[in-house]
């Protein structure tokens, strides 16, 4: 079974081809082009979607070429139907619909966040994990129960990715800023106390963002270091709470912020204390990519026939805990 996945929820336009044999999945190609906003600015949805439109044809043909398959070899096409930025989502959907209707290939709308989890499971071999999804769009703790991913904790306001990006942009970095902040933080170990807000299994970052902005004047590096230490400690504590409550023996970290080494280090320490296995999505596939969409589509194709063109939707708001998982 060969599938094509199209991802275009935010800054990344990506196409990937995967082959599924039984439970095994193999990534044949994963090509992406990432929209970079000017320094100090965030994603402009219109500009990002323009970028996606301009790059979609190149990305698609490169992805087919690299995988060594033609469109006729495709058994299914899946696309990220949400959550994400409306104008960006539409580009991916149009690409997928065009292929599906012209070549008569079954089409699958996929939840982008579920994609992160499924690809993480495929690539790490985690079986029954507590999942930490940390990205620009999500900060959630999830466990699978009774055919649905259930939320055990989440952010009450902005996400970890937004926290890092919004702070980074105030320093003049270009989004995504996680790497810049991580690098700058390495240059110091001078901790400034910042607001720490854990509410049960939930976190809140907005106060931390304002407070960190207010200490930048003294030292940018100290601010970056203290921001990371505080925010990641909050995440680690909620992970610890959820592990202790759910008694899961595996932790899987997925999403763009999973690439941060300091966060991984802290979470590994948490896992050690709870006798829990630690899995993190490989750096190349932690962030947004076509593979996550393709693999989830392939999984869905085990139990569903695909949808008719009239039913191919996109939606900006689509919580992953509202998706029934039947495969």
């Amino acid at each position: 079974m060969i599938g094509l996945g199209v991802e275009s929820t935010a800054h990344t336009f990506s196409c990937a081809i995967l082959e599924k044999k039984g439970k095994q999945g193999k990534i044949l190609s994963d090509v992406r082009k990432i929209y970079r906003p000017p320094e100090g600015e965030g994603i402009h949805p219109r500009e990002a979607s323009r970028h996606h439109v301009e790059n979609s044809a190149i990305v698609l043909s490169e992805c087919l070429q690299e995988a060594g398959v033609t469109i006729k070899d495709l058994d299914i096409v899946s696309y990220a139907a949400g959550p994400g930025l409306g104008p960006c989502l539409r580009v991916g959907a149009v690409v997928a619909r065009s292929l599906a209707s012209y070549y008569n290939i079954p089409i699958y709308p996929v939840n982008h966040a579920i994609g992160h989890i499924e690809l993480g499971k495929l690539l790490t071999g985690a079986k029954n994990p507590l999942v930490l999804l940390v990205s620009g769009g999500h900060t959630m703790l999830l466990a699978f129960l009774n055919k649905q991913w259930r939320v055990f904790g989440e952010t009450l306001d902005i996400t970890l990715g937004q926290l890092l990006d919004q702070f980074g942009r105030s320093l003049g970095f270009a989004s995504p800023c996680g790497k810049n902040i991580e690098d700058l933080a390495l240059s110091t170990s001078n901790y400034v106390l910042l607001p720490y807000s854990v509410k049960g299994n939930d976190v809140s970052f907005s106060g931390l963002l304002s407070a960190t902005k207010s200490i930048v004047q003294k030292s940018k590096a100290d601010a970056c270091f203290s921001l990371q230490e505080t925010a990641f400690a909050m995440i680690s504590e909620t992970v610890e709470r959820a592990l202790s409550f759910t008694r899961k023996k595996e932790l899987l970290v997925v999403g763009g912020v999973a690439a941060n080494k300091r966060l991984s280090e802290m979470l590994q320490d948490v896992c050690k204390r709870h006798g829990c296995k630690f899995f993190v999505a490989p750096q190349k596939y932690a962030g947004d990519c076509g593979s996550q969409i393709c693999w989830t589509g392939l999984l869905e194709s085990q139990v569903k026939k695909g949808v008719s063109l009239e039913e191919t939707f996109v939606t900006q708001s689509w919580r992953l805990d509202s998706v029934k998982v039947d495969y």
Partner: peptide, 28 residues
Amino acid sequence: LSQKTIKPEDHAVDLRLIKEILNSAHAK
């Protein structure tokens, strides 16, 4: 994690948390 507070918002945070737990750990 307890606090002395009479703010209705804080009390609502308490209720939301238990609701989240019922909805996840005790979904059935």
